[in-house]
């Protein structure tokens, strides 16, 4: 139960971060969404043994982190904590691909380790970018951006509702779970019958709430479509942001900056 609750608090925190007012926060969400998607697509397009050429891509999340005034430690911890799935699947690579790939002095690295490290890098980059993106944009604004970029309006509105009532329902569920745990002894009462009834009640309450919300909407002139007034403007700053970063990604995709720097440096030292 702890995991979701913690996540839930995180949502609140991300929301607070998104409420700041910096230059990146003020950018049109569409610009940030498009750029972030381009970023992720570029990162995952690298071959599976690529490590060094992925490094320059750290610039983007780091930029959002710094310019958006986000707490680096928090974001970093979050990235480390989440989703073990990629790591679980990736950890098989070193076992399965043992062909020696790189030697540095006496140290021999198998292809599996290299690709595993590459997976971790990708993971850090993609998750880091998505998280910093949300933290400088805010969920509601992301929904607006989605809708303006062509997602069905119905879907976008539905996302807004889900997000709004997440807070209410998680609180209700927490209260119910707490009430149950106070009356569970020796694990008795934790079984399926009690669960079915508890969830069933929560479900019925949820359905009643939906009914009440609908009546509240109806009372204020709801006619099937939800109107939101949120002027978005895609101006010169947005263009510069998107073009600048996409150009950077493109260059870094085809030009391995770290290798170049490294070889120049070793050349220089010689």
């Amino acid at each position: 139960m702890g995991r979701i609750e913690r996540h839930f608090q995180d949502i609140g925190y991300l929301d607070t971060l998104a409420g700041q007012d910096t230059a990146v926060h003020r950018l049109d969400p569409r610009a940030k969404l498009v750029t972030t998607l381009a970023f992720i697509a570029t990162v995952v397009s690298f071959g599976k043994y690529e490590i060094s050429s992925l490094i320059p891509f750290l610039f983007y999340p780091l930029y959002l982190l710094a310019a958006g005034n986000l707490p680096a430690g928090y974001v970093f911890r979050k990235v480390l904590l989440v989703s073990p799935f990629a790591v679980l699947v990736g950890i098989f690579n070193p076992l399965l691909d043992q062909e020696i790939h790189i030697r540095i002095g006496a140290l021999a690295l198998s292809g599996g380790w290299v690709s595993f490290v590459s997976i971790l890098m990708r993971f850090t980059l993609t998750v880091g970018a998505a998280m910093t993106f949300v933290a400088v944009t805010g969920f509601n604004t992301v929904c607006m951006a989605l809708e303006r970029l062509g997602a069905p309006r119905f879907f976008a509105i539905q996302l807004l509702f889900l997000y709004r009532y997440l807070f209410v329902l998680v609180e209700e569920a927490t209260a119910m779970v707490r009430a149950r745990s106070l009356r569970v002894f020796n694990g008795r009462g934790m079984g399926l019958p009690a669960y079915g009834s508890l969830m069933g009640h929560l479900l019925l309450r949820t359905l009643d709430r939906a009914q009440r919300i609908h009546s509240a909407m109806w009372c204020r002139g709801f006619d099937g479509s939800v109107r939101v007034m949120r002027p978005l403007s895609f101006g010169r700053r947005e263009f510069a942001f998107v073009l600048g970063w996409v150009a950077f990604f493109a260059v870094m995709r085809f030009f391995n900056l770290p290798s170049y720097l490294g070889s120049t440096l070793s050349e220089f030292m010689r």
Binding site: N140, F161, I213, S215, C219, G221, F222, V228
Partner: peptide
């Protein structure tokens, strides 16, 4: 104008502004 008992049922929009604007926009 009907004000519901549980404000959580009445305040369904993303921000306070959006919520107060909901009715006027529908008008």
């Amino acid at each position: 104008g009907l004000v519901f008992q549980d404000p959580d049922d009445q305040l369904f929009m993303p921000t306070v502004f959006d919520d107060v604007a909901f009715g006027p926009l529908n008008l």
